[in-house]
Structure formats: C-alpha cells, structure tokens
Design a binder for these strands. Structure first.
Lengths: 247, 247
DNA sequence: GGTTAATCGTACCGTACGTTACGGTACAGC
DNA sequence: GCTGTACCGTAACGTACGGTACGATTAACC
C-alpha cells in the first residue's frame, strides 16, 4: 500500500543545515550511541562534545530533537546509490541488485545502524513515535523508493515479471535481510565479513531472479535454484555512471 | 540442542514453577507491556497485579528477573507445533510450511510479540542484559529448530533440494517475514488481517518451493512466480482441512 | 578599553524509577 | 490465644536523567 511516500514533505525536517559545531556534536552523539558502555544522555553528549547542555537545548530543542537530528545526520551520510539506468540487460540488472543488496547489508550490519535502530525501536513503544518514523523513513522506505525504479526498468526491459512492484521489493528485502537484522538488534553476536556480505548479496539476487526473472528459460530453468552462482562475465557493478539523481 | 528444553530448565533462573499468583502477576505485566499508554515499572506492575513491590522483589529478584520471567511466561504460552512426520508428500510438506508461516506471522504481528521484542531490543544495548538472548532463543532460534526437521524430512523424501538446512530455513524466514517485523517494531501502523496472513504464508511457501523444490518443474512453471496476492476474497484454495489437495 | 553575543562549565530543580524498609492484615499450626 | 509466615500497601531513599539558570570565558566588533 502506501509504503513509499517519496513526496517532499520537509515540513518537519527542521534540521536546517547543522553548523560544523553542531555536526561535531552529532558525531559525538553517534559515537556515544555506538559505544555499548556509554548511555546516550544529554549530559554525556555535552561532555563528549565539549559543549554545554544549554547549547544542546538551544540547538536541538530537546532530547527528541537531538536524537532526530542525529538520525538524520547519519542518514545523510549514507546517500550514494549508483543506479544504472540505460543499456539495461540481465548482467547490469543483476549487478544493480547485487549492489543494492551489498549496500543494504553493509549498512544494516554496521554498529551505527544497529544502535540507531535499537534506539528507535526502544523509543517506539511510548507516545513520541517520531523517532521510529524517521528511521523507518530512512530505512526500509528509502530502500524501497530507490529499488523500485530499478525493478520497473527491469520489467520494461522484459527482464522481470511482476505485477506489484512493492511486493517484489519486499520479497527482495526478505531475501537479502532474512533474520540478520532482528538477530543483530536482539544482541546476536552475528558478524558479517565483507566477503560474506557479497556472497549473501549474490545469493539473494540469484534467488530473486529465480522468482521474478522473465521466463526466458535460461535464467530460471538452466540454473537450478540450489545451484551456486556460476558467474557470467565481469560483474563490475561499480558503474557510477548515474548516481541516482533523485532526492 | 542444549538450548531448548521445553521444561525443567531451572538452571539459571530461579523463576521456575511460577505459582498461580505469580502467573497472575506475569499476566498483569504482559498486559502493561502491551498497553502503549502504560509504562512497565515495578510500581505499575505491583499496582496492576494488586501485589506489593516487596513481593515482586522476593519472587523475581529484581526488574531484570521480572522481565525475564515475563518473557519466558509468554514463550511458554506459544508452544504448539503440529508437525507432520510421516506420509510425507508435496501437499503435506506445503501444508506444514504454510502452517509454520501462518503461525509465525500471527505471533510476530501480535501486540504482545511486538511489545516484547521492543523491550528486548531496547534493553539489548547495554551490558548484562540477557533479555535479548532469551527473546532470540524463543524467537528466530526456536523457529529454526522447529522448522529444520521438516525441511530435512522434505529432503529425505526427495521433495526439497538443499545442502545447508540452516540457510534454507533462513531463506524461508526472509520470505515469510520480509520487512514486516522491523516495520512493526519501528511503529509502522501496518496491520495484517488473518486473510492477509494466510495469503502471505501461501506466497512465501510457494516462493520457497520454487527456490528449493526438487526439480519437478511443473510446480513452479504453471503457477508462475509473479502471482500476486492482490485478492483477499474467497479463494478456491482456502481449504483449511486439507490445503491444496495435491495437484 | 568597552560592549555584546555566543558558548562553556556547572550547579540546581523536579521527576521517574528501582530498591528497600516498615507497618498492618490474614491465616496456619500449636 | 500466640507465633510465625506470607503477603499487601505505602512511605522513604538513592540515583539517573531531562531540563533550566547563572556566572565565567572567549571572541568579535566598536
């Protein structure tokens, strides 16, 4: 349904251009957030950033504002999605999907993301849901908005077959993330190396193409589902030709 | 293996054999947990359960003990797993998988599960909080332990093809859960009706069998992977008695 | 030098909560 | 009846934290 709301609703994004000093504060907050020893309190942020609490309240309003600004500051850092838009063929599509999966798993399993999601989830219980909404917006929703155009292009090119783009995206999400995120959030000492992430991304992409690849036989039939990826050419997914002009 | 002992696991927690009075207290705690208005504090639990705080500390040691007992009490309630072990064929296997998926989605999207996972995730940040471990144990891990035998049976019967049972389970997990859990935890107002859950379970099962079903192709080809779940009206396959009486 | 604005450091306040302590009540066993 | 036990209700204590106030410091600008 209304999963993706890409419309520019900047009414609440009041965090207009944090000054360098404020950015340093937000980085300090992120540092505290990641540290499992430290608690993210106003006093601790002030001390870590060598600023006064009064300044924190002046700049961010209240604790919620500080957390919101921190989440958005982190989200702003993870904004780079190369997206191949033309000359589409199966190899390019596969590379794009693998790239998405790799990026997503990398972000997901990072300490910062885990800590941030923990904070937002924990905060989502009470009334001030604001934080969870923001993480949701910059997390799953953002991924959907970025991936669905790729899927649409794949469909236009006759490479994919699906009716519901959102459902397709969510299936891809499931194949990529599986139980990794919830396990990390619950404290599972799971650790993903870069190689494992790449491998997972390839597996998820292969499975997704098995499910959604157009029935040109070769993809789904010849290549058995349980079969490992026999590569097809150099999948240099680093094709930053068009870094996703949108948003 | 040594992790899951359905009963008589009083190894580490003194919270064994909760008396009826204590069970009532734990139910009260669960009630508070679900209520987004109330905070789960020792005082509120005592008041809701009409017991004294002194009794709480006597019975559960401290707050952590109370929460742990609450989680385990809830987990003990969700202990019912029909498991078809013989006379296996594709229809039975499919029914088992759909049953698993349905149960899992039902539990996952329940208020209690969401609240419990929120609590555990929020608590998992610091140290010494083994609450996340317990939820993990009774959540994803438990599902894996219960599902993997089914997958193994399916493989022995020549219905499934896979090398790594755990990987297969995790793929199934991803196809079933997708982004539902993280969205719920983050406060997404997503709501799943029973029909939607059944539909999702069928979709996930169909996709899983597409990926892992032994190469009797007809299954995957005829039905097609892109079959949407758009309709929730009366569907011919809605036969809970013997779902999908074999093709 | 003097004035002003921004910021720092810190003391302070109110509240929420975990935890403990204490008085009071019901009841079983003698 | 007396005593011990278990429990309830509540007051009290210590701490942590969000939020505020205020003097001190710096730096820009006249």
């Amino acid at each position: 349904m209304s999963l993706a709301k890409p419309h520019a609703d900047d009414s609440k994004q009041g965090t207009v251009a944090p000054t360098p000093r404020q950015r340093a504060v937000l980085d300090a907050a992120l540092g505290l957030l990641v540290d499992p020893k430290a608690a993210l309190t106003m006093t601790s942020v002030a001390k870590a950033a060598s600023c006064s609490k009064e300044s924190l309240y002046k700049w961010f309003g209240d604790r919620e504002g500080l957390l919101t600004a921190t989440v958005q500051w982190q989200a702003a850092k993870v904004r780079a999605v190369p997206l191949a838009r033309e000359g589409i063929d199966l190899a390019v599509l596969r590379a794009s999907l693998e790239h998405f999966a790799t990026d997503w798993l990398t972000v997901l399993s990072g300490d910062t993301s885990v800590a941030l999601n923990r904070l937002a989830v924990g905060e989502a219980g009470g009334a001030g849901h604001h934080l969870g909404t923001i993480v949701l917006e910059n997390g799953p929703y953002a991924m959907g908005r970025r991936l669905e155009p790729v899927l649409a292009i794949g469909r236009e090119a006759g490479l994919l077959e699906f009716d519901d783009g959102e459902a397709a995206f969510r299936d891809f999400f499931g194949l990529v993330v599986r139980d990794v995120q919830i396990r990390l959030l619950l404290g599972d000492p799971l650790k993903l190396s870069d190689d494992e992430i790449r491998s997972e991304a390839r597996r998820a992409t292969r499975q997704f193409l098995t499910l959604y690849g157009a029935s040109q036989g070769s993809e789904t039939a010849k290549r058995g589902p349980a079969r490992p990826h026999g590569e097809d050419g150099p999948h240099d997914r680093d094709n930053p030709h068009k870094p996703n002009g949108k948003e």
